[in-house]
Amino acid sequence: MKVFALLTVIITGVMLVYGAEDFPKWGDPNQPGSVHVAPRYTQGTYIEAGTPNIVTSVVADYRGYDTMGETTVIFTAGMACILMLRKKKRGEGESNV
């Protein structure tokens, strides 16, 4: 098992290092990730979304739907715990979450 795990990890690592070869340098201001979609958020945040905090405007507005999904994830996790761990009520006792 240990050998298998090590092998998997090494293969994955080699693959990731191989992929990193074509990555832009760290902190490169003109990397493709920063010039395609993101500038609109920076420039439009106050005009379009009404807040100077860009992350806020993206979280709550541009990609607000993702955030709703995110809260649903939390809800799901909560319900999951209730589903899994809630015991039958013992007499008057509180439910044991």
């Binding site: 201001p29 990730g33 920063s34 010039v35 979609v37 993101a38 500038p39 958020y41 920076t42 420039q43 860009i54 992350v55 993206v58 979280v59 990609r63 993702d66 955030t67 999904g69 995110e70």
Partner: peptide, 15 residues
């Protein structure tokens, strides 16, 4: 945009 960090990865990582 060069003066501000790219916000999108931050947002994704919040999620």
């Amino acid at each position: 945009p060069l003066h501000y960090m790219n916000p999108l990865p931050h947002v994704l990582m919040l999620t």
